[in-house]
């Protein structure tokens, strides 16, 4: 198995039926939540999926987790096609791919103790039937997630913990299965600024100590700046630009990436700069604009953008962007 195709996503599409536009219409309309997304993930790599709400990044995470069935396209993991699996195969795969959710207040069952929460994945998968072995694994996962010493937290309830600690519990419950990929869906956006760094540093540490690959879904590029290897920028269900962190930050090529980067607040008043503020909001994914889907809001659109869908242009070995202005 080559290092390249650890997780490979090819032409992934997910359309949701949005019903018929009128009572007697023949054809129903579709929400193009994820529309032809391809990327790959290497072992212990961190990739940041960046985009505004409605760009399809959350649907993409559900597809990768197998919580939604894709309309088209394939996902393969370690060379095996995992797009469509039966329940048993899916369950086996869940040990390899785990997920962390945005809201640590909501993603923990308030009636379970921390010990029950972290133990649960082991029970579900029937791992370590021996109680003492399970306890050992729970303890190790908790300490890896920064809940030290574990005994202090074991028999508490989620509401007795702070937001940062709860997010650590969610992470511990994922780690206990020893996954190879961690899908983090906006894991810090609900937390206080002084706590955010802790969680991000924890994830950065885990990818080194446990060789875990991380897919970090966020709308805030700033928060992943220092630890993501690559960045994929999504707009209306498609990746419009993908490249290494520095390529995207220093030499963004797609006009949407440029605008997105220019409006991220920089905590230094001496560096106040011209912001490219796109007017309006992301269009409804039911009526995707023709041609380049970004052209109605694009500050530099030309007439061809209206009817010609831009191909993905390779700018360097690692850097691709889909914009007609880049076609030479």
């Amino acid at each position: 198995m080559s290092k390249e195709n650890f997780l490979e996503v090819r032409g992934l599409k997910k359309y949701f039926d949005a019903g018929r536009p009128a009572l007697f219409s023949r054809e129903s309309r579709f929400v193009h939540a994820v529309d032809d997304v391809s990327f790959n993930l290497r072992r212990s790599e961190v990739i940041a999926l960046v985009g505004e709400s409605g760009c399809g990044k959350s649907t993409l995470s559900l597809l990768l987790m197998g919580l939604e069935e894709p309309t088209e396209g394939t996902i393969s993991f370690e060379g095996r096609d995992i797009t469509h699996l039966n329940d048993k195969e899916r369950k086996g795969l869940r040990r390899k791919i785990q997920m962390i959710f945005q809201d640590p207040y909501e993603s923990l069952n308030p009636t379970q103790t921390i010990e029950e929460i972290i133990n649960e994945p082991l029970l579900v998968h029937g791992i370590a039937p021996d109680k003492s072995e399970r306890d050992e694994r729970v303890k190790k996962a908790m300490e890896d997630a920064g809940l030290k010493p574990a005994e202090v937290y074991l028999y508490r309830f989620p509401h007795e913990l702070s937001g940062g600690q709860r997010q650590r519990v969610v992470i511990a419950a994922a780690l206990v299965l020893e996954p190879e990929i961690l899908l983090a869906d906006e894991p810090v956006s609900m937390l206080d600024v002084s706590i955010r760094a802790e969680i991000i540093n924890l994830l950065a540490e885990l990818r080194i100590t446990r060789q875990i690959a991380v897919i970090f879904i966020t709308h805030d590029l700033g928060s992943v700046g220092f630890f993501a290897d690559r960045v994929a920028v999504m707009y209306l269900g498609r990746i419009v630009e993908i490249g290494t962190m520095l390529e995207v930050l220093e030499k963004p090529q797609h006009p949407y990436t440029k605008a997105l980067l220019s409006v991220i607040p920089v905590p230094n008043p001496r560096l106040r700069r011209e912001r490219i503020i796109l007017q309006g909001e992301t269009p409804n994914p039911i009526d995707v604009p023709s041609g380049c889907r970004f052209h109605p809001r694009c500050p530099v659109a030309i007439s061809t953008c209206k009817h010609s869908d831009p191909p993905s242009i390779t700018l360097s070995k690692t850097h691709q962007a889909s914009c007609l202005l880049l076609v030479k």
Partner: peptide, 19 residues
């Protein structure tokens, strides 16, 4: 969300209902 999380962990319907 914790029900979705339980699904992501791999729990089946019976487990989700009872727990």
């Amino acid at each position: 969300k914790f029900v979705l999380r339980a699904r992501a962990v791999g729990a089946g319907n019976g487990h989700i209902i009872s727990r």
